[in-house]
Write a protein that binds this DNA or RNA. Structure first.
Lengths: 159, 159
DNA sequence: GATAGTTGGTTCCTTTATGGAACTTGTCAA
DNA sequence: TTGACAAGTTCCATAAAGGAACCAACTATC
């Protein structure tokens, strides 16, 4: 499978990876969630080369995850902001950060804390079932073919 | 920043990406969660080249996300299974699949349904606060420096 | 009015990673 | 003794990323 074919797969994970599944896109998005908006800020913080940064920002704009917003005219300058579609990637980032905190942190502990404005406490993300509200983990879920399924593969067993 | 330096960063997202942040690792893990365990099954389903597959499996084993379990002797054959650390990546995968279902699905809808064994219903993952149990989204969270922070960057503002 | 600085890129060339196909190793079965 | 199977490894061609320099449209300074 070539990289460009990814978003044609009947798999939402593959299609998501077509947008954010490379080295840099998630680090760019992390910085977006921290309030970074301008080309040179991304460059400074990430240590990414300029043409790869330009390419990734362009791709994220094409996928409607970021949008360019002018902040001055003459010379025209634009900054990059998360769209609603981009903001909805927050659970993905939170889940990854939480896993990193648990399994990849050094002796000093988690680098950042997430404060829930609603209750004012340092929180970790918990994934719950949309229907019953109970926490779910891998073993609580059974997978079955949905409406968009085409038999381009077979579910080997319902884990 | 080089790829190998990623896991030295004081950022749990970067460290997580050092493990699962490449083209193939998440697709391999998707298949692991579907019950795939053997080298040739991964190869058939993913269309990945053999030496990249071997490399990624090795890396995932080194990071204790998968482990090799012998299933026959003479000739010795081993399969790959998720460790507990690997199983804890489930929320990451669920969040990505859910985002793909919402934003990247074609007209036929989501390719797979996730049934919560606990309540028997088709569910979507909802991220809630570990402290108060309320659903959280990007705008509900304020970020502050935690114990593992070192000033290798500055939080630009508390989004 | 020439020179330098700022922002947001692009171009060119080198290094690294990936794709594709063939080869290897240990074993069993015909 | 030939063939098949599972799980890799090796070799070479192509694609992607790193690094540095250059460009364009202004503004500010000397």
């Amino acid at each position: 499978m070539r990289w460009e074919e990814l978003d044609q797969q009947p798999c939402s994970l593959a299609r998501t990876l077509a947008v954010i599944g490379d080295r840099w896109s998630l680090l760019i998005l992390r910085d977006c969630f921290l309030g970074i908006r301008r080309f040179d800020q991304f460059e400074d913080r990430l240590g990414i080369t300029r043409h790869i940064l330009a390419d990734r920002l362009k791709k994220l704009v094409e996928h409607d995850v970021l949008r360019k917003v002018p902040y001055q005219e003459r010379p025209r300058r634009e900054e990059y902001r998360l769209t609603d579609k981009g903001l909805e990637l927050h659970p993905v980032l939170m889940a990854m950060v939480h896993w990193g905190d648990r399994h990849m942190a050094d002796e000093r502990g988690a680098p950042v804390r997430h404060i829930h404005k609603g209750c004012g406490q340092a929180m970790t993300p918990v994934t719950v079932c949309s229907e019953c509200g109970e926490p779910v983990n891998a073993r609580d879920i059974r997978v079955e073919a949905g409406p968009g399924w085409e038999s381009a593969g077979v579910l080997p067993h319902s884990s």
